[in-house]
Amino acid sequence: MSERPTIPLPRPTALSRPHWQGCREERLRFQRCRDCHAAVFIPQPVCTACFGPHLDWVDSSGRGTVYSHTVVHRPQQPAFAVPYTVVIAELEEGWHMLSNLVDCDPAEVAIGMPIEVVFRPMSDEITLPYFRPARR
């Protein structure tokens, strides 16, 4: 019996491990600059606003809005069931991340729509942060 192929899962690096460890604990973590307080994501060794070296990992509220979106009908590879909705999530703390919008009819997605993070375990190590329409 052939198994459905699996989607490509992240392989955390020394730089990104705190983010993925946070996801396992259902905490959406990003970096905050101790000097200028800028929010930084994807993980960086220095602040992207002031080049400051002191970045702290902090928890996001997980709430935000859809910054942009696309409904994908031609999958990256067969492991992705189509259609699937890709979003750029704009988090309340002023940072952006790519994700998928789940539990939402693709026809309903719109820029500015309130969304919230929802975690889905994919393996022992990796839990992926997805977003769904805000319920609160």
């Binding site: 989607i7 899962l9 992240p10 990104s16 990256q76 992705f80 890709v86 790519l98 994919m122």
Partner: peptide, 13 residues
């Protein structure tokens, strides 16, 4: 990339 591939991105998206 770890923040892109798992969400089904590719150039068109």
């Amino acid at each position: 990339n770890e923040f892109v591939a798992c969400f089904g991105l590719y150039t068109a998206a």
